[in-house]
């Protein structure tokens, strides 16, 4: 038990913070119920995938600045492909867009490995490229999404054997998120590949000397990041019904949630659960600000300030922790 707490202490603390925020929300708005939780889950969906995309790369010791642009590109691609097409055609669009994310992510990784330019520069250049590509696919917000896809994030999951009141607290968007993340993450975490990703993030030279294929692992990490970003792009299209070529504020949000989630920006530490809970925390803060009837534009400022403060705090801890040899 004590070992569990030591390893998962940060995540547990974060979870307590989330519960606390839920209590605060309930106090501000006594009517806060399952329906509001459902819309929270829907709002979290694209952010959560963006954070998952960033987490994989950060654990591997890198950073991916092209996450938001990748989401924009995959979103407009999906929206323009589904525009005017039949419902069945969407069955082909979804795997196609996911594969596109995977390939573009792998391209990110391959460029880093081949050109030997630092990841931050390569992904910055790719941010421009993907943004441009998104504008080429769709010049202005538009397109459409298949009805069954839109329905897949609205409503709740009926679980047999559970009373209706409990059912209401399991929104489809949350179930979709958990399923999509688990399908990729759990097998990865248990495989040799997952271990290699942690190894190259923790100490690249040591990993190389223990026979980890560093270049290949790095490419795979970026490919997975692209896959998660594509899921995020799809979820954007699904929840809004259109695709927008201008990237949202997902890059900064993903970095902030990664830091808040206990994943060290240096790499090799942390898991996926912490950042995902962190996303819920950040979104819930926004909900609370809205419930307090604060101007949405002011909310954006406060949210931005919180994210910058979190990133500053994370960087501060990293430099303070280093000389002592103890990292949080």
């Amino acid at each position: 038990m004590s070992r569990f707490l030591r390893n998962q202490g940060w995540v547990a603390g974060l979870f307590a913070l989330l519960i606390f925020l839920f209590v605060v929300t309930k106090l501000i708005q006594p009517g806060y119920g399952s329906g509001d939780f459902g819309s929270l889950a829907r709002a979290v969906l694209p952010y959560a995938f963006a954070v998952a995309a960033q987490t994989v790369v950060v654990i591997a010791g890198g950073i991916d600045l092209s996450v938001a642009a990748m989401m924009a590109l995959t979103s407009v691609t999906a929206a323009s492909m589904m525009n005017g097409a039949s419902e069945e055609y969407a069955l082909f669009v979804v795997p196609f867009v996911l594969a596109m994310g995977l390939v573009l992510g792998a391209l990110n990784g391959a460029l880093i490995v081949v050109t030997r330019v630092p990841d931050i520069v390569v992904t910055l250049a790719m941010l421009f490229v993907l943004q441009g590509a998104a504008l080429l696919v769709l010049g202005a917000p538009g397109g459409a999404a298949a009805e069954w896809l839109k329905a897949s994030v609205i409503g709740t999951v009926p679980i047999p054997g559970l009373p209706d009141w409990a059912d209401a607290w399991v929104p489809k968007a949350l179930a979709l998120l958990v399923v999509c993340l688990c399908i990729v993450w759990i097998p990865l975490r248990r495989s040799r590949l997952g271990l290699s990703i942690y190894a190259i993030g923790s100490n690249e030279l040591a990993a190389f000397r223990s026979g980890v294929p560093v270049a290949r692992t790095r490419i795979v990490a970026y490919a997975l990041s692209g896959l998660f970003a594509a899921m995020g792009g799809l979820s954007l299209t699904i929840s809004t019904g259109i695709g927008a070529p201008i990237p949202g504020p997902y890059l900064l949000a993903s970095v902030a949630a990664v830091v808040l989630g206990g994943v060290a920006l240096g790499g090799g530490k942390g898991g996926l659960l912490g950042p995902i809970i962190a996303v819920f925390v950040l979104r819930l803060v926004r909900t609370d600000l809205t419930l307090l009837a604060i101007d949405p534009n002011v909310t954006a400022i406060i949210e931005g300030a919180i994210m910058v403060a979190v990133v500053m705090f994370g960087a501060f801890i990293t430099i303070r922790g280093r000389p002592l040899g103890a990292t949080p």
Binding site: T115, V117, V129, G132
Partner: peptide
């Protein structure tokens, strides 16, 4: 060349020149 194409080109210029 549309705005999108221009951005793609500029992105590749940054990457290529840095490399």
């Amino acid at each position: 060349m549309p705005e999108g194409g221009r951005r793609i080109l500029f992105g590749f210029i940054v990457l290529f020149v840095t490399a």
